[in-house]
């Protein structure tokens, strides 16, 4: 059985758990605990280890989805999770500009040493005052060739679209 891995990352409360939950075929294995730091201001429970989802591609192939912990103090986990990944989705809460700097730090972490295929998902586009994907591209200083996609992590079709767009990026870089 071959397994391939995609990583879903982003700042605290960007919507990583919900994103994986929307598409995973199994109940998402999540090690959520009561937050003990300032993330409590944002949500009562936040991810402190990781989320894990799974999609069976065929009898011999499985896609695993890993959500990274959002807090800075767990960034040592990011490197472990990113080893051998096929691609990366960076989720951004489009309604909270105070998380954009942290999002940039996460992007920088993942792409600085690896030639990683990634897309940015502008989550919470259904909320009032959400920054548009193009505004997020400028705010995050992303070059035009990086896809910044509209996303609502609770909507399965929206999550599918983000994953497909990432797969098209990977497809372009793959070999025959």
């Amino acid at each position: 059985m071959q397994t391939v891995k995609m990583v879903i990352s982003g700042a605290v409360n960007a919507g990583k758990t919900e994103f994986i939950r929307s598409i995973s075929e199994i109940e998402v294995v999540s090690t959520e605990r009561r937050a003990t730091d300032d993330t409590r201001m944002i949500k009562k429970e936040t991810t402190v280890a990781m989320d894990f989802g799974r999609i069976a591609i065929g009898p011999d192939l499985v896609l695993h989805l890993f959500g990274t912990p959002g807090q800075k103090r767990f960034d040592f986990m990011w490197e472990i999770l990113s080893e051998g990944m096929l691609g990366l989705v960076i989720l951004v809460d489009s309604t909270r500009p105070e998380t954009f700097r942290e999002t940039n730090r996460i992007i920088d972490f993942f792409i600085s040493y690896r030639d990683t295929a990634y897309v940015i998902a502008a989550n919470k586009q259904d909320r009032p005052n959400a920054w548009s994907p193009e505004e997020l591209r400028l705010a995050l200083r992303q070059p035009p060739h990086i896809k910044v996609l509209p996303c609502v992590a609770s909507d399965r079709e929206s999550v599918k679209n983000v994953l497909l767009e990432l797969l098209y990026v990977i497809q372009e870089r793959s070999e025959e």
Binding site: G87, L164, L167, E176
Partner: peptide, 25 residues
């Protein structure tokens, strides 16, 4: 660091299989 550039050596056929599976979900 011994970290391979995974996506540069992934087979297109494998990617196509994942694409087709997700499209069908």
């Amino acid at each position: 660091r011994g970290v391979p550039a995974e996506t540069s050596r992934v087979k297109r056929s494998l990617v196509n299989r994942i694409i087709n599976r997700i499209k069908g979900m």
